[in-house]
Write a protein that binds this DNA or RNA. Structure first.
Lengths: 115, 115
DNA sequence: CAGAAGGTTTGACGAACGTCGAACTATTTG
DNA sequence: CAAATAGTTCGACGTTCGTCAAACCTTCTG
């Protein structure tokens, strides 16, 4: 059960447009791809290698969670997030798989257009 | 071959982040879903049922085309667009299929949250 | 209990975005 | 050739977004 102070939508309330809106930022796509291993990951900057401040990262976490993509686990002062893989697959079959495929990860890793 | 005055990226230059950026607008997602039948569709407002002005629609067409999602065919004064289905599938397998699945179309059709 | 550690929240700022109406271009029709 | 048609481009507008630094809140540690 998710922590009540970090609300997330019910599975039925996850909207495709909300997901796509959340994934319009390359950094957030990267986060989802890192989470694709199904594990919980610590909510710190090093974990995702994103060269942004922690307040910005926290904002991205919030955006992903409110879109229904992630869930949070809090133990002590450590926050961890994970993909809601099962619920997302049930709702939009194949979507997460295609976004975290080898081709997708390779494309996002190569950040911008090679000049 | 695409018309030179409506440039589109080569298949290899289609970026996932570009696609997701283009699809962050619900109207553009809707357009892609209408195009999912593989046919060319006229570039007019009625075709997509989107309650926006034609200048706005044209802006959406441009965004989709520059992201590599669509291609244009011009005959006389009629412009038609189609999804670049094959190239997109080759580049990001399963992505378009998941975005235009029955579940995805149903979700986007039900525009906002039911109160 | 004082301080450190791990993240979140707040407020502000500039950039990017969706939208529209008006002007424009090219083609077809009378 | 003049008017109509199909759609794009331009310029302007209000809004939303990503970003950061600073303040904040909990939990852990000495």
């Amino acid at each position: 059960m998710p922590d009540s102070s970090f609300p997330q939508p019910d599975a039925d309330d996850i909207r495709l447009t909300g997901i796509l809106r959340a994934l319009s930022d390359p950094g957030r796509v990267r986060i989802v791809q890192v989470l694709a291993d199904g594990e919980y990951h610590a909510c710190n900057v090093e974990e995702f290698g994103l060269d942004i401040q922690k307040s910005t990262l926290s904002h991205h976490f919030k955006t992903l969670r409110e879109a229904g993509l992630t869930t949070v686990d809090i133990t002590g002062r450590n926050h961890c997030i994970a993909l809601r893989t099962g619920e997302l697959e049930a709702r939009f079959p194949g979507l997460i798989a295609s976004l975290t495929s080898e081709a997708a990860v390779a494309d996002v890793s190569r950040r911008a257009a090679p000049e």
